[in-house]
Amino acid sequence: MGETVLSLTGVNGWYGESHVLHGVDLDVRRGEVVSLIGRNGAGRTTILRAIMGLLDRREGRLEIRGHNMSTTPAYRIAKAGLGYCPEERGIFASLSCEENLLLPPVTRTDGGMAMSLDEIYAMFPNLKERAHSPGTRLSGGEQQMLAIARILRTGADILLLDEISEGLAPVIVQTLSRVIQDLKARGFTIVMVEQNFRFAAPLADRFFIIEHGRVVEEIAQADLAARADDIRTYLGV
């Protein structure tokens, strides 16, 4: 595994007046897939939003590729090579599928990570067929693929994916699983928030367990079987 490309140290976060992140420490290395797991409301989505600068207030240190980005405005975070796929997918209703796909500006051309439109359409053939449909006429699975696809052509090499398997049919979840493996093979660094542990389990190199707005434990892929009972307790299943 490579050097640390994304790190949070003592990050606190607020939605309005309510304090939701309490000292998050987290590091992600180049080319790895990590998964944030935990109960609903534990703060997993909020951690991704904190990284993207989408909270009302954030304190603590955020470093991307060793650069301190703690006070960087939200619109500059993406330029550091981050691609964000929000939980609600964020497909724009007034834009066609292709307009949605082309919306995020290409922010880095030097990294060589940007996929061309042809490569993206090869990975998600459905999106090509639906290019001119309004974004919200797409099926749930197509919308999810669109939400992932559109951050692949910007040059971002760190992908933050929030609950991408949520509410989708098993066959589509399998497709997404292959997509994640493919992206990992291409060298993308991926941070996944997942409720569906069975989806995340074979994909992630490391798991961060989130409780009450902080990271309470880190488990490596190799220890997964041995720690299965603990994980079950943490997830409350």
Binding site: L54, R76, A78, Y84, A93, L95, P104
Partner: peptide, 20 residues
């Protein structure tokens, strides 16, 4: 298109790196 998207969800458009 950026403008229409910004009308729907400015914070997400910002997260994509657009100077909203």
């Amino acid at each position: 298109a950026t403008l229409r998207a910004g009308t729907e969800n400015p914070s997400l458009v910002q997260a994509f790196g657009v100077n909203v």
